[in-house]
Design a protein around this nucleic acid. Structure first.
Lengths: 228, 228
DNA sequence: CTCATTATTGAACGATCGTTCAAAATAAGG
DNA sequence: CCTTATTTTGAACGATCGTTCAATAATGAG
């Protein structure tokens, strides 16, 4: 409750310095390594020792830069969440600017494609991130992260879909939306299973082909579930 | 390579006894507790100590009855997998006996509904199991379990779907099938997220209503993805 | 009932977990 | 360049991990 004057604040906080380039690089490489290992082995399966080793840093650096394991996990998820949300909302804005009335396909495309383009470009960090999002979306232990990072944008798109289906109730829309998100995430988490079930030679389909198929699937599925 | 006579085999294996009822109960309660805790916290998040404690057994009993943690996990998954597969294949047989030509909706219903009816009946063990299956399906570390427990039945249904869409290629069918399975599993793993996105008062939809919506969603989605 | 086998018990194993610390090295600000 | 805040380092902490063991108790078979 003691409200300090700027002068007093400056007095007892002796001096301040900018972060060094090396420190920033360490912090970043820890985030990258954590992203990879958390995605690969899960939160409990990835140890801070392995993360530090993969980042070429000391174990103590993780606590120093990112408080602890749990905060590190949250920061890893948050890092790309805002970028992804921005891409989605930008696509939505572009859509609204172009046509006065939105279609369901355009809406789903705006939501689903940014994700798939990032992952499909082959960037291994984005592929890892996709697995992370799937983990967070499927585990109630991380519901606070979902609330903060993903639900706001999802809410915007659900509201737009609700305008297209005025007679459908909100929970039915939310259910269909989760179906769509789950299908999208399965492309990252279950690619190995798709290949196994495709049988025969491993002619894996290209990501942009998969993206088209996903949008078709979700558009038709949603329409059927909401119009019925 | 030494082929022993029955007499010799009986000689060096001194005597055999049936398992006691108590032993069987212990083994079973361990499986139940493991199912709950693995589903709740994941493989690495659930400790054998917590599992033993929840089962009212000693830690050493887990190694004694189920070899070790990894084997215990596999047995937990396998236990209900055969029952589930049987229900699905029975539904398929019933379908074939009734009508000479199958519809996509009937096929998907035969695959999806047994699962949802078990989980929807409110049996907490089956609800936990659904989360387990989602974990196995999304993690390549458990691909051997998927291969053994789930892929064979999935292959049967994919083959039936392939008959309905002769022009669609196998991998496209597999992709749509994984989309459908992911949507199904999301009802168990992301129910909390659905409720969050439904906003407003928590009027959660009944499971049989959700099942109808899921089948509609997947049927229309598959048709669009495979006919296009 | 007797006895050999099976199962349970409680304790301990070494390994690894996440976190913390003081000392040494680094680098920004004046 | 000097000072000093910042960062890195290596080691250690206590807690918990999965597994193993010898002993004790329980139990099916004869």
């Amino acid at each position: 409750m003691s409200q300090e004057s700027p002068a007093a604040a400056r007095a007892d906080q002796p001096r301040r310095r900018a972060v060094s380039k090396r420190s920033l690089a360490t912090s970043l490489s820890i985030l990258d390594a954590a992203e990879r290992l958390f995605a690969e082995r899960g939160y409990d399966g990835a140890s801070v020792r392995d993360i530090a080793s993969a980042a070429g840093a000391q174990i103590a650096s993780i606590s120093f830069h990112h408080v602890g394991k749990e905060t590190l996990f949250e920061r890893v998820v948050e890092r790309r969440a805002s970028e992804l949300s921005q891409l989605r909302l930008d696509a939505l804005s572009a859509l609204k600017a172009k046509a006065e009335s939105l279609t369901l396909e355009a809406l789903l495309s705006a939501f689903l494609r940014p994700y798939l383009e990032k992952a499909g470009a082959g960037d291994p960090q984005w592929l890892a991130y996709a697995r992370l999002v799937a983990m967070v979306s499927a585990d109630i232990r991380w519901h606070r992260i979902s609330e903060r990072c993903f639900d706001p944008t999802a809410g915007v798109f659900i509201a737009e879909i609700a305008k297209l289906f005025p007679q459908a109730d909100r929970s039915a829309i939310a259910v269909s939306f989760i179906f769509s998100v789950s299908a999208m995430l399965s492309l990252s988490t279950s690619q190995w299973r798709i290949e196994a079930l495709s049988a025969a030679a491993g002619n894996r389909p290209a990501m942009d082909r998969l993206a088209d198929q996903l949008v078709s699937f979700c558009e038709a599925g949603m329409r059927a579930a909401l119009e019925g």
